[in-house]
Simulated assay, not measured.
Amino acid sequence: MPLPADDHTGSRIREQRRLARLTQRELADRIPYSLSLLNQVECGARPATPGFVAAVAHALRMDASRLAGPPAVTSLRPERLLALVGPIREALDRYDLGPNPDLAEVRPAPELIAEADALCRQVRATHLRAAAKALPALIVESTQTVWTAPSTAMWKALASAYRTAHDVVLKLDHPDLSRVALDRMGWAASRASDPCIEAVQRYKRATLWRCATSLPLIASGQSLLAGETSREALAVAGQLHLGAATVAAKNDDATAVEAHLAAARELADRVGGEAGDVHWLSFGRANVTLHELGASIAMRNFDEALGQARALKLPDSTLTSRRARYLVDRALVEMEAGSAKASLKFLAQARQVAPEQTRHLPGTRATIRGLVHMSRRAPESLGGMARWIGL
Rank of each mutant, 00 (worst) to 15 (best):
H58M: 12
H58L: 13
A59N: 10
R61V: 00
M62Q: 13
M62E: 08
A64P: 03
R66K: 11
R66C: 01
R66M: 04
R66V: 01
R66F: 04
L67D: 06
L67C: 12
L67W: 07
L67E: 05
A68H: 07
A68Y: 06
A68T: 09
G69P: 02
P70A: 09
P70C: 02
P71S: 11
P71L: 11
V73K: 05
V73M: 06
T74L: 02
S75R: 06
L76D: 03
L76P: 00
R77N: 05
P78A: 15
P78Y: 15
E79N: 14
R80C: 10
L81N: 02
L81T: 04
L82S: 12
A83V: 10
A83M: 08
L84E: 01
V85N: 03
V85P: 02
G86A: 13
I88Y: 08
R89Y: 08
R89W: 08
E90T: 01
A91M: 12
A91W: 12
L92S: 01
R94F: 14
R94H: 14
Y95M: 13
D96Y: 03
D96C: 05
D96K: 11
L97V: 10
L97M: 12
G98Q: 14
G98T: 14
N100K: 07
P101L: 10
P101F: 10
P101G: 07
D102R: 14
L103K: 00
A104H: 09
A104I: 00
E105V: 06
V106M: 00
V106W: 01
R107A: 10
P108M: 09
A109F: 11
A109N: 11
A109G: 13
L112H: 04
L112P: 02
L112I: 07
A114Q: 06
A114E: 04
A114T: 06
A114C: 01
E115Q: 15
A116Q: 07
D117A: 07
D117Q: 10
D117P: 01
A118G: 07
A118T: 13
L119C: 07
L119Q: 04
Q122D: 15
Q122S: 15
Q122M: 15
A125Q: 11
H127C: 12
L128P: 00
L128V: 09
L128D: 01
L128F: 04
A130P: 01
A131D: 05
A131K: 08
A131T: 13
A132Y: 03
A132R: 07
K133A: 04
K133D: 04
K133P: 02
K133V: 08
L135S: 02
P136W: 00
P136Q: 00
A137D: 15
L138V: 00
L138S: 00
L138K: 01
I139Y: 11
E141W: 11
S142F: 13
Q144A: 03
Q144T: 00
Q144I: 02
Q144G: 02
Q144P: 03
T145I: 06
T145S: 09
T145G: 02
V146G: 00
W147Y: 15
T148Y: 12
T148Q: 12
T148R: 14
A149C: 03
P150E: 09
S151Y: 14
S151D: 10
S151T: 12
